[in-house]
Design a binder for these strands. Structure first.
Length: 348
DNA sequence: AAGGCGGGGAG
DNA sequence: CTCCCAGCCTT
């Protein structure tokens, strides 16, 4: 119990002044929690401001189009979060009269809300006694109690959830949950934790056992897949081009990109241009020029994408063609946005 | 139980 | 380069 009181005490004097700490509105807490999943506070903050500005209430978010929502989310990654956010907003506005479930169990039913987020909203907004377990909590508990169970296994998840629940301050779940997370983010950091000034440094088992550097234990995941993307940037006298929306499974679901031809390996320009698939895609009376000889390397968590852009000068395009100056209305991957930022049609 | 899903920052 | 971030969903 001393553990919990120390954390809360530390929190009250060290907490950051974050915008979502100014409110207990479930809509804004929900918004912040979804955005901060696997995302640093500094990275999510500008997006939070933009969303609150554009969609002050769950009804505003519900009434927006998916394209608007994805566009505002562009660059934040894990785009299923934005799609689920939008779907849940429509559900709450339409089916629940805009009122969020007021407990863990009810929140857990919502799309995009898992154990962590349901616990966070329930405790922060309604002071329900449910413990959050995020990356910070894993680290703080693993170190303080010198728990060596890998955190990314079912056994580890169960063990840490139980431990977190035991340590929860039932008198103030909201403050305690935020305290342990903030403590993990600022004091008990992944690298170079501030053990010298830590209020728990006389009782931390990992510190006593010199295991700070190896805790928490996390099993490594698989290898990185290499992919070779060839984007066809159509151009013509009408200054229009083609964009396709990605559908189905895989990365960037719902986002737009230029027509894509993926190859198993890096082809030479001659090989690429002589491929039947490519000739069919660019058409008969077109000239094709490779924009970047050196592929752009775009690194994702589990994929490395080697991207080349091919400028295709062609005649009139189909009716689905988009004016070049309208591209900015479409949500696109950062890889595409970077190209657009650098590319000037006058270069051609 | 394992894999997929972004992008960026720190060390 | 590796690690990891206020995780969730699907298979």
């Amino acid at each position: 119990m001393n553990f919990s009181r120390q954390l809360v005490s530390w929190y009250l004097t060290n907490k950051r002044d974050l915008p979502w700490r100014q409110t207990r509105e479930p809509y804004k807490i929900w918004l912040s929690e979804i955005m901060l999943q696997q995302t640093r506070v500094e990275q999510g903050m500008p997006y939070y401001y933009r969303f609150v500005e554009a969609f002050p209430t769950v009804f505003d978010l519900a009434e927006a189009s998916q394209q608007e929502v994805l566009k505002l989310w562009q660059g934040l990654g894990y785009y299923s979060r934005a799609r689920n956010l939008h779907e849940t907003a429509k559900y709450i506005a339409g089916e629940l009269s805009g009122v969020f479930p007021d407990n863990y169990k009810g929140l857990l039913e919502l799309k995009g809300i898992g154990d962590y987020t349901a616990s966070a909203i329930a405790s922060i907004c309604y002071n329900e006694a449910v413990a959050v377990v995020d990356g910070n909590v894993y680290r703080v508990l693993a170190r303080y109690f010198a728990v060596e169970t890998p955190i990314n296994t079912p056994a580890g998840i169960r063990e840490f959830k139980k431990l977190a629940a035991e340590m929860l301050d039932h008198n103030n779940p909201s403050t305690y949950n935020q305290a342990i997370m903030e403590f993990g983010a600022l004091q008990c950091k992944p690298k170079n934790p501030l053990c010298e000034t830590c209020p728990l440094n006389n009782s931390c088992l990992a510190l006593q056992q010199k295991k700070i550097g190896v805790l928490p234990v996390k099993l490594k995941k698989g290898k990185i897949r290499k992919r070779y993307f060839n984007y066809l940037v159509f151009q013509n006298e009408e200054n229009t081009t083609l964009l396709h929306q990605r559908t189905g499974k895989g990365i960037w679901h719902g986002l737009y990109e230029f027509p894509l031809i993926e190859t198993k390996e890096q082809l030479t320009a001659k090989e690429f241009l002589s491929a039947e698939e490519v000739k069919a895609a660019v058409g008969e009376n077109s000239t094709v020029q490779l924009y970047n000889e050196m592929p752009v390397v775009h690194k994702l968590s589990h994929q490395h994408i080697y991207a080349r852009f091919w400028l295709v000068e062609s005649g009139n395009l189909s009716t689905e063609a988009i004016p070049m100056d309208k591209i900015e209305d479409y949500p696109v991957p950062v890889l595409i946005q970077n190209f657009l930022n650098e590319y000037e049609p006058s270069d051609y």
